[in-house]
Nucleic acid binder design. Structure first.
Length: 202
DNA sequence: TACGGGATCCACT
DNA sequence: GTGGATCCCGTAT
């Protein structure tokens, strides 16, 4: 069952925590890609120096963060990667959740070809583990790029589903790669499923 | 397993 | 002109 607008229209930290165990789905020309979200980070706009929308910055890049909850915010980073985020809260409140790790469950060959140019069975052990265990990696595997920035996740192309209800332990800790963000550097806004091999970093 | 440097380019200043 | 919400590979341990 698909997650609806109500799910995203809540406190960003709550959404970040509850996104764990949910399933990301991307339909591409009849090919369905699915994977369980295992790692997230919350970015709290106005009060968070690590957020692109810190202090209410509203450049062209971050416009999607001000859009409806349940909107995709995709940005380009380090000259070669995209990062996929999910907008939360209310329209006009620029907060979002970065998806940092996914456990692939459907469309493995498609993902493997996107990442390494060969079918899943031909991947090395190392390549299998590196398929979707990071924000840039999962974007490549799931064919997520700038063209999906601003897309409504309550639609039929890119959306989220409820998981299978299995229990897991959640770890809450500091975010990754934001050393420049002064005091926000240490905010415990990162969540992941304990023990899952697709978490980007322990 | 851990660390260091290079790749690469758009958006922002 | 600058630098980043990253990744990969080489080298060392």
């Amino acid at each position: 069952m698909k997650l609806d607008r109500e799910f995203y229209s809540r406190d960003t930290l709550t959404v970040a925590r509850e996104l764990l165990g949910k399933v990301l789905v991307h339909n591409i020309n009849g090919q369905k890609l699915r994977g369980i979200i295992v790692e997230t980070e919350a970015y709290l706009g106005l009060r968070d120096k690590a957020a692109h929308s810190y202090g209410g910055r509203k450049t062209k890049r971050v416009e999607s963060m001000y859009d409806l909850p349940g909107t995709a915010y995709v940005f380009f980073i380090y000259g070669m990667y995209y990062c996929f985020n999910i907008v939360t809260e209310r329209i006009g409140v620029p907060e979002a959740v970065l998806i940092r790790g996914i456990e692939p469950i459907e469309g493995l060959d498609f993902m493997a070809r996107n990442r390494f140019g060969v079918d899943y069975d031909n991947l090395t052990k190392r390549q299998k583990r590196n398929l979707t265990n990071g924000p840039g990696k999962l974007s490549i595997a799931f064919n997520i790029d700038k063209s999906l920035d601003g897309v409504d996740l309550c639609g039929d192309s890119l959306y989220l589903e409820h998981g299978d209800g299995k229990k897991f332990n959640i770890v809450q800790t500091k975010r990754i790669g934001i050393d420049y963000a002064e005091e926000a550097r240490d905010f415990p806004y990162r969540f992941y499923i304990q023990g899952n091999p697709y978490v980007s970093k322990l």
